[in-house]
């Protein structure tokens, strides 16, 4: 699965994108965020406050209980600040 990071999530984690092999117990967005925290101390720090970690699956905003499929494009980012 491809995971993209934007804004300060990208700078804190240190990469713009990574490809991950999800363990079978990760079934939804909330599970993915928890599992990503275990990848490195940088991930853990960047993802510590889930209130400011928003998620899109296949380029649509989704809640944390949204289910995941292996081919999904998942993006993690802070609340948007355009306009």
């Amino acid at each position: 699965m491809k995971v993209l990071y934007f804004a300060w999530l990208r700078t804190k984690i240190g990469v713009a994108a990574e490809t991950v092999d999800l363990p079978p117990e990760v079934k939804d967005v909330g599970g993915l965020v928890e599992w990503l925290k275990t990848r490195s101390p940088k991930h853990a720090e960047a993802l510590a406050n889930s209130k400011v970690v928003k998620v899109a699956v296949n380029q649509e905003h989704v809640p944390y209980d949204h289910p995941l499929s292996p081919g999904d494009e998942v993006a993690l980012f802070p609340p948007v600040t355009g306009g």
Partner: peptide, 13 residues
Amino acid sequence: IDWLKTKAPFWKL
């Protein structure tokens, strides 16, 4: 413009 500000994925540095 109100919806754009909360839905379009832009971030300002």
